[in-house]
């Protein structure tokens, strides 16, 4: 089953105004750079974006914020982005901040076909407002848990290190982060990869996301892979 398509422009053809998208990555690590560039070029608007962060001022989802393409962000951490903070404080941008583990697990639940999860994260905080709380025994202690819903996203845009024509994906280092569970969660999943290989070249034992979850895959180009906080030590 060949899922290969030519490029990002073709991959995002079906993405329209007001859709909900998941975008993989942690900070600028492992983000779908090609798909973001194509979305900026296409100019779709009114998007709801589920992503751990909102990029930086001039890269990642920050590029979409500058063009006012995003109606709502669902994220866990949005520091380091002045334009984001400006749009948030001025009310131009709707933002739902949720715990990072909740974000990951709501994606996972979607990919596992489960409607809700129960998590202790956020119990007793403003994150819990309006949510169902249930008590369960864990390790012999009764503890409160919040019910959180699985996400429902029209598209998931993920970035992998290697992929094959069947859509099987392998990630590298901490660029894996949210990409696998988002790949599993999208109604339609687009994967961009640094190296696209023919089916049969990847060791089936090494595959992180099996191709059944991936609808379109393409060979990415011109990766910048920007580093947000370059920190080094002296030799």
């Amino acid at each position: 089953m060949n899922k290969t398509i030519a490029n990002a422009e073709e991959a995002i053809k079906g993405i329209e105004d007001n859709m909900t998208l998941m975008l993989g990555g942690f900070g600028l690590c492992g983000i779908p750079e090609n798909c973001i560039a194509a979305l900026v070029k296409k100019g779709v608007k009114g998007l709801t974006c589920i992503a751990n962060n909102a990029g930086v001022d001039d890269f990642g989802i920050g590029l979409m914020l500058h063009k006012h393409q995003v109606k709502k962000m669902i994220s866990s951490y949005v520091g380091e982005n002045a334009e984001f903070e400006r749009q948030l404080l001025s009310g131009e941008l709707e933002v739902e901040l949720i715990p990072q583990g909740t974000l990951a697990t709501r994606c996972l639940a979607a990919g596992y076909g489960m409607p809700v999860i129960y998590t202790p994260a956020g119990v007793g905080t403003e994150v819990a407002i309006g949510k169902e709380v249930r008590k369960f025994m864990v390790d012999g202690v009764e503890k409160e848990f919040l019910m959180e819903y699985a996400f429902d996203a029209d598209y998931a845009l993920v970035k992998a290190w290697k992929g094959d024509t069947q859509g099987n994906l392998i990630f590298r280092g901490t660029a894996r982060n949210f990409n696998p569970m988002m790949a599993m969660a999208g109604r339609t999943t687009i994967a961009e990869v640094e190296e696209l290989v023919p089916a049969g070249e990847l060791d089936p034992d090494h595959i992180h996301v099996p191709g059944i979850y991936v609808h379109h895959i393409f060979q990415g180009v011109n990766y910048e892979k920007r580093i947000e906080q370059r920190t080094v030590r002296k030799r």
Binding site: S75, S76, Y77, V78, G79, L97, I98, P99, Q100, G101, T102, T119, A121, G122, T125, V127
Partner: peptide, 8 residues
């Protein structure tokens, strides 16, 4: 800035 992983 957001809670990141702190709440979890």
């Amino acid at each position: 800035k957001g809670m990141g992983g702190a709440m979890d």
